[in-house]
Computed example of a mutant assay.
Amino acid sequence: MRAMTVPANALRGTVTAPPEVAGVFPVGDAACVTDPMYGRGLSLALAHAFRLAELLDGTPEVGGARAAGAARIAEELLRPWYEQTVADTSARTALWRARAAGTEPAVPPVAPVPGRPQLAAVAAAATVDAVVWRGLTRMLMTLDTPAAVFDDPGFRERVAAAAGAARPAGPPPPSRAELVAALSRTATAVAAATGTEGG
Rank of each mutant, 00 (worst) to 15 (best):
M1K: 12
R2E: 15
M4S: 12
T5L: 07
A8D: 15
A8G: 12
N9M: 00
N9V: 02
L11S: 07
R12G: 08
R12E: 04
R12W: 03
G13V: 01
G13N: 04
P18F: 00
P18N: 01
P18D: 03
P18Q: 03
P19A: 00
E20D: 11
G23E: 02
P26H: 00
A30T: 04
A31E: 05
V33E: 08
T34P: 14
T34F: 09
P36R: 02
M37E: 01
R40W: 15
R40E: 09
A45G: 15
A45H: 11
L46Y: 13
L46Q: 07
H48G: 10
F50E: 14
F50I: 01
F50Y: 12
L56Q: 04
G58E: 14
G58M: 00
T59N: 10
T59W: 00
G63S: 09
A68H: 09
A71F: 05
R72C: 05
I73M: 05
E76N: 11
L78F: 04
R79Y: 06
R79K: 11
E83M: 07
E83Q: 13
E83P: 13
E83L: 13
Q84I: 00
Q84M: 11
T85C: 13
V86C: 08
A87K: 05
D88R: 09
S90F: 00
R92K: 07
T93P: 08
A98G: 11
A98N: 08
R99V: 10
A101I: 05
A101D: 11
A101G: 11
A101F: 10
E104G: 12
E104R: 15
P105T: 03
A106P: 13
P108W: 02
P109C: 07
V110G: 10
A111Q: 07
P112N: 04
P114Q: 03
R116N: 06
R116H: 02
L119M: 07
A121V: 00
A121P: 07
V122C: 04
A123F: 01
A123Y: 04
A124M: 04
A124K: 11
D129V: 03
D129K: 08
V131L: 10
V131M: 05
V131E: 15
V132K: 08
V132D: 04
W133Q: 15
G135R: 04
L136Q: 09
T137V: 02
M139N: 14
L140T: 10
M141V: 00
M141Y: 10
T142L: 08
T145V: 01
P146E: 07
A147F: 06
V149Y: 09
V149W: 06
F150G: 03
D151T: 05
D151K: 05
G154V: 01
G154H: 08
F155H: 03
E157L: 10
R158D: 09
R158S: 09
R158P: 10
R158Q: 09
A160I: 01
A163Y: 06
A166F: 00
R167Q: 15
P168E: 03
P168V: 02
A169C: 07
G170Q: 08
G170V: 02
P172N: 06
P172Q: 03
P173I: 00
R176F: 12
R176V: 12
V180D: 15
A181H: 09
A182C: 11
L183D: 14
S184W: 11
R185M: 10
T186Y: 09
A187E: 14
V190L: 14
A191M: 06
G198N: 10
G199F: 14
G199Q: 14
G199V: 12
